[in-house]
Computed example of a mutant assay.
Amino acid sequence: MSQGHGSEYPYLDSPAVNAEALAEEERRLAAVRRYELVDHPIEEAYQRVAFIAQTVFDTPIATVSMVESDRVWLAACEGLSGVKEVGKEPGLCASVISQDEVYVVNDALSDPRTLEHPLVRGQLGLRFYAAAPIRTHDGYRLGTVNVIDARPREVTPKQLKALEHLAAMVSDELELRLMVIRSAAAEERLRAGVS
């Protein structure tokens, strides 16, 4: 971690990070928070997406994640009971949100991006990881739809396209969620003004 950011931005580890990059990250975090999904119970719509991703890739684990400032919140999870969040070390979800393409790690023990990641070196023993970024309609990358295995794997272009479609479905679902949030807030304001 570089000195200028403080612990709130551990994934912005380049010494050349400037004020605009930090401002952009603040805007991204505001986008994550406007959907009010982090720290809330799992919703069935996101759980279905994780189940389909797990099925398409035939992996033991699949998640829908939101990348916060200091952690990765699992909005849905297949194959990891009781886990609601993981660390935000670079190499997995925190790296996926820096690009638009699907991110694939065929063998995490030989990929320099993931060699030292705690999920690779730790008890989980992650070896395979593929993720598509969840992009909002206004361009922010909030998190990922990802699949995980404890053995190295290869993937097909069709599987990767499915992962992209699932991430787009999450984005659409988030927009519906935002409409409900805004509608409820407007109704509350109307009630407050009428009283």
Rank of each mutant, 00 (worst) to 15 (best):
V67Q: 03
P112S: 08
D149E: 13
V145A: 04
S110L: 11
E175A: 03
D149C: 02
A167S: 10
Q99P: 08
L119C: 07
Q99W: 04
A132N: 08
T136S: 14
R151F: 14
S95I: 07
E175C: 12
L166H: 02
F57I: 04
Q123V: 05
E68Q: 10
V83I: 12
I97Y: 01
R151G: 13
G125E: 01
V104S: 02
M169E: 13
M169L: 14
G87R: 08
I97P: 08
A167Y: 09
L178D: 01
Q159A: 10
I61T: 11
E85D: 12
L109W: 11
V102T: 00
A186T: 10
S171Y: 00
V86E: 05
V104R: 03
S183C: 06
N146F: 08
G122T: 07
Y140D: 12
L92E: 07
V72P: 03
A184I: 08
K84Y: 09
P118K: 05
V170L: 06
S95G: 06
W73K: 01
V83C: 11
E78F: 06
M179K: 10
A186I: 07
P152T: 08
E85W: 09
L160N: 05
K88G: 15
E68Y: 11
V67D: 03
P90L: 14
T156C: 07
H165V: 11
D138K: 05
F57W: 01
S183L: 14
A131H: 02
F57L: 10
V102P: 01
F57K: 00
P90S: 12
L74D: 04
R151E: 15
A150H: 15
S81I: 01
Q99L: 09
D172I: 08
S81L: 07
S110G: 10
L124N: 02
L92T: 01
Q123S: 14
T55V: 02
P90D: 03
V147S: 03
A108V: 08
A75Q: 09
Q54C: 15
G125L: 04
Q159L: 10
V86I: 14
Q159E: 15
E89N: 11
I148P: 05
E101D: 09
T63D: 04
E154R: 11
A62N: 01
V102M: 02
G82W: 07
T144N: 11
A168N: 10
I97R: 02
A162L: 07
A94T: 00
V96M: 11
C77P: 05
T55L: 07
S81Q: 12
G82K: 06
E175D: 04
S183R: 12
R182E: 13
A162C: 15
T144H: 07
Y103R: 01
P112D: 12
A150K: 14
T144I: 10
V180M: 13
N106F: 10
A94L: 08
V155S: 15
T55Q: 09
V145H: 00
H165Q: 14
T156S: 15
P60C: 06
V120P: 02
I148G: 11
V120K: 05
L115Q: 09
E175G: 02
V105N: 01
D58V: 02
R113W: 14
E89C: 01
A130S: 12
V155P: 07
R141C: 13
G122W: 08
S98Q: 12
A94E: 09
L124W: 05
G139P: 12
A94V: 04
P118Y: 06
A132E: 03
E154I: 07
S98C: 13
T136P: 05
I97W: 00
